[in-house]
Design a protein around this nucleic acid. Structure first.
Lengths: 95, 95
DNA sequence: GGAGTTTACGAATGTCGTAACTATC
DNA sequence: GATAGTTACGACATTCGTAAACTCC
């Protein structure tokens, strides 16, 4: 069985982790446990077929693929937020 | 507890339904049952705080908000697919 | 009454957090 | 031995499909 498709929730986990370069802080920022965050990132890596972080378990750093996804993922997320905001700004649209 | 955030899976359901203007065919296209598709669309409407379809249960048609989301949602989905394809095209990147 | 969407309800899946494990310093 | 990420495992929540209900022609 397979999901095999990109989902925004995974991407939010990845972007937070990529920005913090620290799973614990990233998880805290997203109000979830590090184990949950790590699982989502692992799934994302499997879905994309790419390693996104170089892990030494002592510290994490972005791979080249990770850096690419950070750029494109941020753009995608901000576009998604723009759509949400566009709708939510006008509950009962002004005309 | 709240999810309250846009997810691509909901958007895929909505776009299929908006293109077919028929929940049954849309569900078939996505290989799911109409009831499941309808539930996702309902959640999406609640999340965005907007009615997306005018339903007469005999036929569905897009509201103005629905037409807007169809445009922006398609763009978002195609960008998401582009990211996926970009990664999957180069399993073991070409150099 | 039939085509089409929605609701009710168990069953199956997925996701979570705690705790134990692994590895690095 | 402390810090940071991962895996194992039940518990909880979501999502599914079937079937019944509803609604408009």
């Amino acid at each position: 069985w397979s999901k095999h498709v990109l989902e925004l929730h995974q991407l939010r986990c990845f972007v937070a982790a990529a920005e913090e370069l620290h799973f614990g802080r990233a998880a805290q920022r997203l109000q979830m446990m590090p184990s949950a965050l790590g699982r989502h990132i692992k799934l994302l890596e499997e879905d994309l077929g790419a390693r996104l972080f170089a892990r030494t378990t002592r510290a994490v750093s972005l791979t080249e693929d990770g850096a690419t996804l950070l750029r494109e993922g941020r753009a995608l997320l901000s576009r998604a937020e723009a759509i949400e905001d566009g709708f939510r700004r006008w509950l009962r649209k002004p005309q």
